[in-house]
Amino acid sequence: MYAWWHTLKNYLVIYWLFAKNCFMAQMEYRFNFYLGIGVEISYLIAKLLYVVVVYKTDLHIGSITPDGILLFVGTFTLMTGIYSGLFFYNSLKISEYVREGTLDLLLVKPISLQFLVTLRYIHFGTPIPNVIAGGVMIVIGWNALEIPVTFFHLFAYGLFLGVATILAYCLMFLPALLSFWFVNTGGLGMIFYSIWDANNMPMAIYSKWARRIGIYVLPFMVITNFGPLLIMQELRVDQLIWGLCVPIIMLVGFRMLWKRAISNYSSASG
C-alpha cells in the first residue's frame, strides 16, 4: 500500500514537472502562444455558428430545448479544450518519436512509457478559449434548464467529465498508435477529428444506427452526451451502467494495443 502511494506521488510530481516545463517553454515564444489562442478562437467561432442556428430556428430535438442543446454544446466545447490541452500535441508527437528514433531514449527510462509518451506535453494557450466558452455555455444551459445545483448533480456531471476525458484519451490516441505499424497515419487522424466534431450536437439528432455505433463501437458519443443526459434525468439505467464500464474497457483495450505496438517496435525494427 505504501509503495503504491509512493509511486502515485512520484508520478504526480513528474506530471507537475511536465506542466511546469511546458509552461516555461511556451512562455519562451509568447507571440506564438497568443496566436495559438487566436486560432482556437476562430475555430470556436465556427462552432458557435451552430449555436446561432439552434437559437435562430428555435430547434427542439425531441424534448431537448435550445437551452438544453447549449448544455451539450458547452460540454463538447469544454471537452475539446481538455483534449487540445492535454492530449492533442502528444498524439502528434508519437509518429515523430517513431520516425526519428527518439523513442529509444524514452524506452530506457524507469517509468511507464505510456505515461511518458502520451502525457509529456501540455498546452496552456489553446484550451483557454474553449474551456472558458464551454464553461459559460454549461452554466447558462444549466441555469436555463432549472437543474438544481446539488452535490449529487455536480458529482454526477463531474464523474462523466472524467469518463469523457478517459474516452477522449483512448479514442484520439488510436490513430497515432497505428504509426507503429504504418508510417503515415495523418489521414486517419483527420477522420477522427471529423468524428469528434460530430459531438457538437446532441446525439439525439442522429439516426438510430449512427447512435448505436457512436455509443457501443467507437464510444465517441458517450463523451459529450451522457453527462448532460444524466443531470437532465434522461439517461437510461442500462446507459448509465455502460457509461461507467466503457472507460475501463477502453483503457484495458488501449493498454493491450499499446503493449503490442511497443513490442512490435522492439522486434521489427533495427
Partner: peptide
C-alpha cells in the same frame, strides 16, 4: 475526401 463526408452528415441531421 472521406473526412469531408462527416460535416455534411452533421449538418444534414441538424
Amino acid at each position: 475526401l472521406l473526412s469531408a463526408f462527416f460535416p455534411i452528415m452533421i449538418q444534414y441531421f441538424i
